[in-house]
Design a protein around this nucleic acid. Structure first.
Length: 803
RNA sequence: GCCGGGGUGGCGAAAUCGGUAGACGCAAGGGACUUAAAAUCCCUUGGGGAGCAAUCCCCGUGCAGGUUCGAGUCCUGCCCUCGGCACCA
């Protein structure tokens, strides 16, 4: 036998990466595709540490799917770009004392090299970076469209202020009261004028559409939770002062048990409702609460505090006068900022009532001591509603109060409007000019982009004003409407706005006169398949959906959901913990690729565990993949020696081949890459065992393997005499009959316990199998002469004899 | 507290509809080849027990019950763990 060349991954991977680039195999015809398939992965943030294995895990999984679709005959567009603006980049730049405008291009260069090295099927013609003025021009343009439509607006609001970042951060970037990027820094409460996007206007649609999106359930659940829909009613409580207090409640059936009321300390009616003699105490309490940061108010001390206002409201159901209080456990941002307190049936109200000795009245019968929150009980102490199940009573009570104008059905959402202002430098300037006469005016579209000036002193300070304000010649500008001296908005926009539309830009990167080309967009969007991490379930994915919906309403795109199909991948952890620089457990793939080659490393990551679950990175298993690829290498080189018309495969190998094609096809489609790889391994083991190599056994295998190990498959495909890329080959088809042919082993149970195995031909009847089973010695031993009372037969699988 | 994943050998994991638990791989042990090692190939490998042996029996998928001819899978109640939300009315 001729000596096969050694498998040298470094050499063949270089060879094929160069050839793919030369022959433009990864560049579909964007204008005339026959079967367009937009295969998208979440683009990376180009950190200084470079691509880590977590990125590579996600990108490999996406790339395998793209290559699989390519082999199935689709024109696959798999673009790549960089999410390079943002506080994260800026903080890093500050820490190393280099300007981000210098640092980011270097990082991107590293990422490019790594992404090319691992063999991603990227169309580099359409690379983008969010920091490119050619890109963020259109980020600003989107802001202006939303501004014109009234969907971007300014609002004085309690915002989260991170003292480390020295900037406002969105609710989504606050984790348990701590800054997402500074887990040891508590976020403070500040009142500032900020730009918001009106995402809450779309809450219902964002929620409802989830039902018809083909998304991972886990992701949909996270979004549902985040949007936080509650059904209930708004009830009106009159006061002697004439002021009416509206409350939101999910339990209008308990209104007879409302024995006091609580307003948020910031509630606008507090002044009106405070009795003169209580004013000092009330004001002191309000100051005390304001001094607290959002965190200690929300997640810190849960001890109930509050003060009595010295006045009363009338319970609309009972007509009783009930005392009015303010307390910081009621939040101005949710509902109406005021509640009716039902201490018998709400845990928080109960704690408060107990602390301040307020009366507690049960209105739902229950065996538990108060507070009982059950909705299964029967109404008591509730006038004409006594005896009704409280679920049914909800509607009746609302209807009864509605007649007097004291109730309306109401839906509340937990979702807040999206605060996009950042008092920082490294982002797209918000394209607004303030004029004393005209107010905030949008920068005219012909003047876009508002270029981020290259300033050396970009360090933020605690003033709440962006560093851009220090740049005088940039700051002062003529009002586009009246020509008077105006001032530019100095805040930049949230980096999540950059990433909320990048998928729209990819197919149209060469156009500078439009954000996206209508025809290209009609051809390629919405995105056919999107794969990414669940850490973006409520940030990026929700924002992108909102921006797309708004753009659709404004007539700029033809669809309202950008990602009809989304799959969440798992997380690669290390030693049981999330990889992070601070833990020092970040794994960089370069050394592994250097040692084992990209193909081995790609497959190793996919074999680690289920793609949607992720797994713990440990190096040990990698040799198993290399051994497998060595075997494929050897089989293929042996096959080059067999004639083109090689003899037919033995029946067992042929059957296994068809079963393997079936399984690899199904598993790759569902992203179950670990079991697809296992199936290919089984097949190779069988072929070797049977000594049944040859072209017929190997060529279909190489195509199945091509998405996983593209370089190796190309090399072997060429060695077998093909002169076009393996990615022009058709995905193999299987014959269900051949996959099923042959004998089957049937398990014989007696009373549910396995007592024997029979080999019969496929499709054997129950009678035949029973007859055979009763001849089997070990089966007879357990039947032991007793009459068979019942038989259960599962075709081609199992027979159970019950005696 | 609420909402979701998940708990299977020494390890990573498999197991369409309820139908042979542990595929595939790692590690480990034994053997072959070799002067030797590496590589490669072959065998063994959930636990316990019986037997000279081929082989056979019992137990086993977090815990306790249940449904079923049959449960890793379905139901009830717990425990642990990971993730999300959280004074959200």
């Amino acid at each position: 036998m001729t000596q096969a060349p050694n498998y040298d991954p470094q050499a063949i991977e270089k060879k094929w990466q160069e050839r793919w680039a030369r022959d433009r195999v990864n560049e579909p015809d964007l204008d005339h595709p026959r079967r367009p398939f937009y295969n998208l992965m979440m683009f990376p943030y180009p950190s200084a540490e470079g691509l880590h294995v977590g990125n590579m895990f996600a990108f490999t999984g996406t790339d395998i799917y793209g290559r699989f679709k390519r082999l199935q005959g689709h024109d696959v567009f798999e673009p790549i770009g960089f999410d390079a603006f943002g506080i994260h980049s800026e903080n890093y730049a500050l820490s190393v004392g280099t300007h981000p405008a210098k640092l980011i291009p270097e990082n991107i260069e590293t990422f490019r090299r790594q992404l090319k090295r691992f063999g991603g099927m990227y169309d580099w013609r359409h690379e983008l970076s969010t920091t490119d003025p050619r890109y963020y021009k259109w980020t600003q343009w989107i802001f202006l469209q939303l501004f014109k439509a009234g969907l971007a607006f300014r609002k004085q609001a309690a915002v989260n202020w991170c003292p480390k970042d020295m900037s406002v951060v969105a609710n989504e970037q606050v984790i348990n009261g701590y800054c997402e990027r500074h887990p040891d820094t508590r976020v403070e409460q500040r009142f500032l004028e900020q730009w918001f996007f009106a995402i809450t206007k779309y809450a219902e649609r964002l929620l409802r559409n989830l039902d018809r999106l083909d998304w991972s359930d886990s992701t949909r659940m996270l979004q549902r939770n985040w949007i936080g829909r509650s059904e209930g009613a708004e009830l009106v409580f009159d006061t002697p002062s004439g002021a009416r207090i509206t409350v939101f409640t999910t339990r209008p059936d308990t209104v007879f048990g409302a024995t006091y009321m609580v307003l948020a300390p910031e509630h606008p009616l507090v002044d009106t409702l405070t009795a003169e003699e209580r004013r000092p105490a009330v004001n002191a309490y309000r100051r005390e609460v304001q001094a607290k940061d959002i965190v200690s108010r929300r997640v810190g001390e849960r001890t109930k505090t509050g003060v009595f206002l010295g006045s009363y409201a009338r319970n609309p159901a009972t007509g009783e006068a009930i005392p009015l209080w303010i307390a910081d456990y009621v939040l101005m941002e949710y509902g109406t900022g005021a509640i009716m307190a039902v201490p018998a049936h709400d845990k928080r109200d109960f704690e408060f009532a107990t602390a301040f000795q307020l009366s507690i009245r049960r209105v739902v019968q229950s065996d538990e001591p108060p507070p009982s929150v059950t909705e299964d009980g029967v109404m008591v102490n509730s006038g004409q509603f006594d005896g009704l199940p409280c679920r049914g009573a909800q509607k009746k009570i609302v209807a009864w109060l509605r007649e007097r104008g004291l109730a309306t059905s109401q839906v509340q959402y937990r979702l807040h409007d999206w605060c996009i202002s950042r008092q920082r430098y490294w982002g797209p300037p918000i394209p607004i000019i303030y004029c004393d006469r005209c107010g905030p005016v949008g920068v005219p579209e012909r003047d876009l982009p508002v270029v981020l000036p290259l300033i050396e002193d970009f360090r933020p300070d605690a003033s709440g004003v962006s560093p851009l304000a220090r740049h005088q010649e940039w700051y002062f500008v003529k009002c586009p409407q009246c020509g008077a001296r105006g001032r530019r908005e100095t805040d930049v926009s949230d980096t999540f706005l950059d990433s909320a539309w990048y998928f729209l830009r990819y197919p149209s990167t060469e156009f500078d006169d439009r954000p996206w080309d209508t025809k290209r967009t009609k051809t390629w969007l919405p995105v056919t398949s999107y794969i990414g991490g669940n850490e973006h379930a409520v940030l990026h994915l929700l924002y992108s959906r909102f921006v797309t919906m708004a753009l659709q309403e404004l007539g700029h795109v033809h669809f309202e959901e950008p990602f009809p199909k989304f799959r969440a991948h798992g997380l690669i952890i290390k030693d049981g913990a999330k990889m992070s620089k601070s833990r020092g457990n970040v794994v960089i793939p370069d050394a592994y690729i250097q040692k084992w080659g990209a193909d081995t490393f790609r497959m190793y990551l996919m074999f680690l565990g289920p793609f949607h679950e992720g797994g713990d990175f440990r190096e040990e298993g990698i040799t198993g993949i290399r051994r497998f690829l060595d075997k494929v290498w050897q089989l293929a080189h042996e096959a080059t020696l067999t004639p083109a018309a090689s003899p037919a495969l033995p029946a067992t190998v042929e059957r296994k081949l068809h079963q393997t094609i079936r399984k690899v096809t199904a598993d790759t489609e569902s992203l179950d890459y670990n079991t697809a790889i296992a199936a290919m391994m089984e097949y190779v083991n069988l072929v070797r065992e049977q000594g049944a190599g040859g072209r017929q056994a190997v060529e279909p295998l190489l195509v199945l393997l091509a998405p996983y190990a593209p370089h190796l498959s190309e090399e072997l495909w060429e060695a077998l005499g093909h002169d076009r890329s393996i990615f022009h080959a058709p995905w193999p088809s299987y014959d269900e009959r051949l996959a099923a042919a042959g004998d089957v082993e049937i398990v014989v149970q007696v009373n549910g316990k396995v007592r024997g195995r029979l080999t019969v031909s496929r499709g054997a009847t129950e009678a035949q199998v029973v007859a055979l089973a009763l001849k089997d010695e070990s089966v007879r031993k357990f039947v032991d002469g007793q009459p068979v009372r019942k038989t259960v037969y599962v075709q081609d699988r199992l027979l159970n004899l019950v005696v």
